[in-house]
Every structure is written in C-alpha cells, then in structure tokens.
Write a protein that binds this DNA or RNA. Structure first.
Length: 200
DNA sequence: GTTATGATTTACT
DNA sequence: GTAAATCATAACG
C-alpha cells in the first residue's frame, strides 16, 4: 500500500541539483515478488550530461548504456559497475537532457529482514544500505529494472518526513577523481549527522 | 573480434 | 593502506 507517490513533475525540474537535494528524506520503495522494502534517502549525487565530465553522458554523448538518461524525468537508470555492483539513479529533467541523481545511501525503514537476507547479514549493521552498490542489493534492484518508471508498482518514491534545510550538507562527489576539475563540484548532498550516510 | 576500464565493496597485508 | 573481484560497455582494429 503506497500512500503518497511523488508526481512525475517532481523529476522534471530543470535543475538536477535541486532535485538531488529534494530527494533527501524521501522514501525509496521496492516491491518484488511481494517482498516490500523501503529506505529513506540520506545521500545523493547530481550528474548533468550537459556540462559535467563525471557524467556518463558527458557532453550529451548518447550511448547504449546511458540512453535512458535522455528520457524524461522519472525513469530509473540502473547499471552494473566493476562487473559486480548495481547503481541506482533517478533520471531528471525533460526528454533530450541527460541529467540524473545517483542514490548513494538510504536508511532502512521497512522490510529490514528482507534486506538483511539479500545482503547475507544477521544484524542491520551500517553497511546494509550505506553505499550505492550496497543499497541496490538490499532493495533488490538490478539491471532488470533499467528504465522502470518511478510511479510503477514495483519501484517508486514516496513523500517522507519533511527535512529542514539545515540538515542538508553539500560536498564534493566521490569516486569521480578522473573527471578533473568537475570532480570538485559540490554536487553530493547528504543528511547531516545521519549514521547511514556512506562516508563521513 | 579484441582490449581496457569503471559513479564500488570487501578482504587482506 | 592496498588490491582483488568480475563483466557490460566503449573504443579500438
């Protein structure tokens, strides 16, 4: 039972960094095979295809992998990194603009036992969902869900507790050193003093 | 057809 | 702190 799925217009905002900040505190939900899991988003990163070397769609270069980023906001961009980990992104902006928000960490809210089972853990330790590759495994997200709309009944995002602006911290992104000066952009956002943020 | 590599995690020296 | 795991995709030839 979902109670307040975000409207698709939420994702179509023209400034991807604004959407990245607004996503903090929202609930990322999945329902695969009747196993419901929910996690509050506590860490995000913004990527823009227009002017950002760190983005897979740098320079609006369209490839098979990133083509979903050019679709309208509200699609899920899931892909495999290092042959091991799945990363989950939310596509933003209008069709033809390759902007997306990477979800880096969530705080478990519902279906924690299912998440632990998927991760092979016995206790809800911090690494259950703290990290972009870890949270997708906990929530059961794979490349099968590439291109899924976020108002579907298997993956969606709900309105969460309102998050005061002074709880949001901007920082440089992680793991994109190769992008030169674009790696210095403060496009990473996380919830202040939340223990589930991947790196402090 | 072949080769290099990454928006990472984990285990080990 | 450093390195290995492991594969789809991109950039060659």
């Amino acid at each position: 039972m979902k109670y307040k799925t975000l409207d698709l217009s939420f994702y179509e905002h023209e400034d991807v960094t604004v959407v990245a900040q607004k996503l903090l505190g929202k609930l990322l939900c999945t329902n695969f095979g009747g196993e419901l899991t929910k996690g509050m988003i506590v860490e995000t990163e913004a990527y823009s295809g227009r002017d950002d070397k760190a983005c897979h769609a740098n320079g609006h270069k369209k490839t098979k992998r990133n083509s979903i980023m050019f679709a309208q906001g509200g699609h899920a961009y899931v892909y495999l990194i290092y042959g091991i980990h799945h990363l989950f992104n939310v596509v933003t902006n209008r069709e033809g603009t390759a902007d997306a928000v990477l979800i880096r960490a969530v705080e478990p809210v519902a279906g924690i036992d299912v998440m632990m089972q998927r991760r092979g853990l016995e206790k809800p330790e911090k690494r259950l969902t703290a990290g972009p590759g870890a949270l997708t495994k906990a929530l059961g997200i794979t490349t099968d869900h590439y291109g899924t709309m976020l108002n579907s009944d298997i993956i969606w995002i709900e309105e969460g507790e309102p998050l005061p602006d002074d709880r949001i911290v901007a920082a440089t992104r992680i793991g994109v050193d190769y992008a030169g000066e674009d790696a210095l952009k403060p496009w990473r956002y996380y919830v202040k003093e939340n223990p589930w943020v991947s790196r402090f």
